[in-house]
């Protein structure tokens, strides 16, 4: 057997392993209510129930509002994250200032702090600012550059840009802010996409922060609504899986659309410095 065939077999096995939970989720979502987790794929050929999706969306409540809330939080988080993390990454890569490296290490060190550790003080801060039950606690940490890993990714990417480019831009009359905007950011498209996708997934699927900060049903997000399917006595697994599939769909679409740039970004981050 040639190496090429072996490679294909390995790829198909891996792809199947990753696809299995998705296929299982879709399969369960189409089974008759009450079938539970035991139904087989073969049953679907003569007894599929796509109406489960309509029922699931109805059970979630005001779906358009849930979707709108989640989109608002996600879009603001992505915009904030890209803006502040790329700025910080540029500064750590291209601006020389006293204590720069020590500060960078300090920023990286915060990655070791689990989010739950700072949850209570953070909640108290947001409560004292009167921001509880608003989207601010979900979005502000991203807008304030609260993702050291993304700062690290941007810094690594900006370090790969030739120093002559920034020097030429300085001579052409640019300050650092203009260099960041006109030269560094357009060249960092793969990293923007990579960080954008990571942030999208984190914000879209975030359950913890909405659970802690959002109380009003009109501010609820999709992840909170999804959790409401899980009840002790009457969990309709088929509806829960149908709702999960709907919530998951945008993640898959975003990934497949931006796949090429995402991979380039990850490769650069993994291979440089």
């Amino acid at each position: 057997m040639s190496a090429r065939v072996l490679r294909w077999v390995a790829l198909v096995v891996c792809a199947s392993l990753f696809a299995l939970p998705l296929v299982y989720m879709l399969s369960v979502s189409l089974h008759r209510e009450g079938t539970g987790l035991g139904g087989s794929l073969a049953d679907l050929a003569h007894d599929a129930h796509p109406e489960n999706y309509g029922v699931a969306l109805e059970k979630m409540g005001d779906f358009p509002r849930l979707l709108a809330n989640t989109v608002v939080v996600t879009v603001l988080s992505i915009a904030g994250q890209l803006l502040t993390c790329s700025l910080a990454g540029y500064a750590f890569a291209r601006i020389e200032f006293r204590g720069r490296d020590a500060l960078f290490v300090a920023v990286l060190a915060t990655m070791m702090l689990p989010e739950q550790v700072s949850a209570i003080p953070r909640f108290l801060v947001f409560r004292s600012l009167g921001m509880v039950d608003t989207f601010a606690p979900l979005v502000l940490p991203a807008v304030l550059g609260g993702a050291p890993f993304f700062i690290f990714l941007f810094r690594q990417y900006f370090l790969t840009l030739p120093a002559e480019l920034t020097e030429a831009a300085r001579i052409d009359g640019c300050g650092h802010l203009r260099i960041w905007w006109s030269i560094a950011l357009p060249l960092a498209r793969p990293m923007l996409v990579t960080v954008g996708i990571f942030t999208f997934l984190a914000a879209w699927n975030d359950f913890w922060s909405p659970l802690v900060y959002l109380f009003s049903p009109e501010r609820s997000t999709l992840s909170l609504a999804l959790a409401s399917f899980n009840r002790t006595y009457d969990t309709a697994v088929e509806h829960m899986m149908a709702a999960s599939a709907v919530v998951l769909a945008p993640c898959l679409i975003v990934y497949f659309v931006a796949q090429k740039l995402f991979l380039r970004g990850v490769q650069v981050a993994a291979s440089k410095h």
Binding site: E164, L165, A168, A169, R170, I171, D172, G173, G175, L187
Partner: peptide, 20 residues
């Protein structure tokens, strides 16, 4: 003075053209 304020222009060995 900052580079931009010196009224000089520079041509680099590696061209330093903005690729995008």
């Amino acid at each position: 003075l900052a580079p931009a304020e010196r009224d000089v222009a520079m041509v680099f060995q590696n061209y330093a053209l903005y690729p995008h």
